[in-house]
C-alpha cells in the first residue's frame, strides 16, 4: 500500500511540475499566440541554473556556488527569462515563424552546449551532488517527498492565481486584443511588440521555475532531461487541455503525463522483448498523433475556453478587407 501511495506522490509531483510549465506555455500560446518551439530550453535553463547556483562546489567544474535555495531557484527563473528575452527581442517584431524557428534553435543549441561544456555543466554526466533544501531536517524518505509535493502544489496554486489575475488585468485584456486583431490594437496606441515580449519572457520564467523544481526534485540534471521530446510533451498537454484555458492546461498535464507513464509501463510489461527497443519510438508517435489529431478534430481542446466573439459583423469585414494580400 505504501508503495502505491509513494508512487502516487512521485507521479503527482512530476505531473504538477510539468503542469506549471504548461501554464507558462499557455500564457505564451493560449493568451498571446506565440509559438515557443523550445520550451525545453527555458525548462533546462531553470534546472541547470538552479543546481549550479545552489549546488556545492565541485572539482573540475565551475559553478556550485552553494547559494540558499530560494536564491538559487530565483536564479534559475532569471536564467530562463534572460534566454527568452534575447530570443524574443530578436524575433518578435518579425514574421511569426521566426520566433518558432529561433526558439526551436535555442533548444537544440542549449542541449548541445550542456552536453559539451563539461567544465561548466558536467557534460553528459550532468550535475550531481545537489543538496535538496531541508534535507537535513526531513531526510530522504517518504516524508521528504510528501513535503516536497506540498511545496510544488503550493507553487502551482500561486502560479495559477497569478495567471488568472493577469488574464483579467488590463495587461491580459491587451494580450487578448493583440491576439485577436493586431492592427486594431496597434492603432489604439498599444505597442504589441513590447507587450508580447513581456508575455513571452513571463511565460518562460514560469517554465524556468518548473525546470528549477524538476532539477531540485531529482537533485540531478543532465542533457537527457533537456531532449526535444519534453517540448512536444508539454505542447501535447496544452493542446489536450485547450489553449487559453489554465484549468484545462493543468488537466492536460495530468492526462498526458499519466498516458505517457502508463504507455511506457504497458509497453515494457506486455510488448514482446524484441519490440522493447522501440518503446520510445512508439510513445513519440503517440505524442505526435495527439498533437496532430487534436488540431484536426478538436483544436479547442478537451476543455475549451468559453469563447466570446467580441465584435461580429462589420468590424470583421473591415479587417478582412485590409488583409487582402
Amino acid at each position: 500500500m505504501i508503495g502505491v501511495v509513494s508512487y502516487l506522490v512521485f507521479f503527482t509531483t512530476v505531473a504538477a511540475i510539468l503542469g506549471i510549465a504548461v501554464m507558462g506555455l499557455n500564457l505564451q500560446w493560449g493568451n498571446t499566440g506565440l509559438f515557443n518551439g523550445g520550451v525545453v530550453a527555458s525548462f533546462g535553463a531553470g534546472a541547470y541554473a538552479t543546481l549550479m547556483l545552489g549546488g556545492p562546489p565541485q572539482d573540475g567544474h565551475v559553478g556550485g556556488f552553494g547559494l540558499v535555495y530560494p536564491l538559487a531557484l530565483a536564479g534559475g527563473m532569471l536564467a530562463a527569462g534572460i534566454l527568452a528575452w534575447i530570443v524574443g527581442k530578436l524575433t518578435l517584431r518579425l514574421r511569426h515563424d521566426y520566433l518558432a524557428i529561433a526558439t526551436f534553435g535555442v533548444a537544440v543549441a542549449f542541449e548541445n552546449v550542456m552536453r559539451n561544456a563539461t567544465t561548466i555543466t558536467g557534460g553528459a554526466q550532468g550535475i550531481r551532488g545537489f543538496e535538496r533544501p531541508l534535507r537535513a531536517m526531513l531526510g530522504d524518505g517518504f516524508t521528504y517527498n510528501v513535503v516536497f509535493l506540498v511545496g510544488v502544489l503550493v507553487t502551482l496554486v500561486l502560479v495559477y492565481v497569478f495567471l488568472e489575475r493577469l488574464t483579467v488585468s488590463p495587461f491580459g485584456r491587451m494580450l487578448r486584443a493583440i491576439r485577436e486583431d493586431e492592427t486594431a490594437a496597434r492603432s489604439l496606441g498599444k505597442a504589441p511588440d513590447r507587450i508580447r515580449l513581456i508575455s513571452f519572457v513571463t511565460g518562460s520564467v514560469i517554465i524556468g521555475l518548473a525546470g528549477g523544481l524538476y532539477g531540485t526534485f531529482y537533485a540531478f540534471v543532465s542533457p537527457q532531461d533537456v531532449l526535444p521530446i519534453l517540448t512536444f510533451q508539454i505542447w501535447a498537454m496544452l493542446i489536450v487541455g485547450g489553449a487559453g484555458n489554465t484549468k484545462g492546461a493543468l488537466a492536460g498535464a495530468f492526462i498526458i503525463w499519466g498516458a505517457w507513464t502508463f504507455s511506457g509501463w504497458a509497453l515494457s510489461r506486455f510488448a514482446p522483448i524484441e519490440a522493447q527497443l522501440y518503446t520510445g519510438s512508439i510513445q513519440f508517435v503517440l505524442i505526435g498523433l495527439v498533437i496532430v489529431g487534436m488540431l484536426l478534430w478538436r483544436p479547442q481542446g478537451l476543455f475549451p475556453e468559453r469563447l466570446v466573439v467580441s465584435q461580429p459583423g462589420q468590424n470583421r469585414e473591415k479587417t478582412q478587407a485590409e488583409g487582402f494580400t
Binding site: 512536444f232 520510445g280 498533437i291 488540431l295
Partner: peptide
C-alpha cells in the same frame, strides 16, 4: 500558427 504546430507534430510522427 496552427500549421506550424501541426508540422511540429508531424515531424515527430514521420521520424518515429
Amino acid at each position: 500558427l496552427s500549421m506550424v504546430f501541426a508540422s511540429f507534430g508531424m515531424s515527430l510522427v514521420i521520424r518515429n
